[in-house]
Amino acid sequence: MDPGLILVQTFNGLVYSSILFLVSSGLTLIYGIMRVLNLAHGSLYMVGAYLGITVVLYLMSGTPLGYLLAFLAVPPLTGLLGAALERGLIRRTYEMGEEYQLLLTFGLILIFDDLVKMIWGPAYINFPDPNAFLGGFRFGEYKIPVYHILLIALGFSVFLVLWAFFSKTFTGKVMRAAAQDSEVVEAMGVDVSKIFVYSFFLGSLLSGLGGISAGPLYTASPGMGTDIIVYSFAVIVIGGMGSVPGALAGSLIVGVFRSLAIAFYPQMEIVVVFVIMALVLLVKPTGLFGAPEFERR
């Protein structure tokens, strides 16, 4: 094996880890706070990419300013969309079994996939290459695009911001408390239904940010939401469901191993992720950073 290729693939893996982290941190924080697993979380990632291409290509015709605008405007929009879904639809399932939650959010995936096809068409849409204005470095025979470096930096900064938010701010602390026991938090005078909307806003914002980040790397396509959500499940199971540091660890593991598999054993690309997941489950069923699961009666 060529050590240069290993390095480059590890680097590419970190880029993918970064996007995985943006999506799965949103998924895991919604699950952690509300015990809701939003299957349509990947759809918000897809919507993020499509809104991104609309701003970058159709409104700003590929200028650097368009990219800046897309990164600033799109994530809050997907956040609002997620909050609206929680308010309008998902909230109504809290009193029902979680199978209804999963099914409702699965129905949303089908709806979003077809709506995207209706609005933007079924074909893949390429983003204008951001490295055209960002440039890149040479590393031996390989090229390292600046956009990839920025994405890795983005992933780590989001982790730091989330960490600061949950440990330093009042709202973040209340959200963590609601994750522990929403009834007690409610008894202390906090409007828990607001906390739920905030979590959906924040989680969906992160997913949309993942989508706009991923768009220039992998194009925008109608099936991209279901692709990423399945890997995100593996990430949060490996890291421990509900844990943001777990999502970081899981993203790093999945991103790097998948990327190395693509280079050296391409037929193992999908399998390697789930083999790691199965191994983690055998050794530590609650995931690397997960708290022990308790069975409600």
Partner: peptide, 12 residues
């Protein structure tokens, strides 16, 4: 899309 809408309606 039709199936998705039916699914959401059934759940709700």
């Amino acid at each position: 899309l039709v199936i998705g809408v039916v699914l959401v309606a059934i759940v709700l």
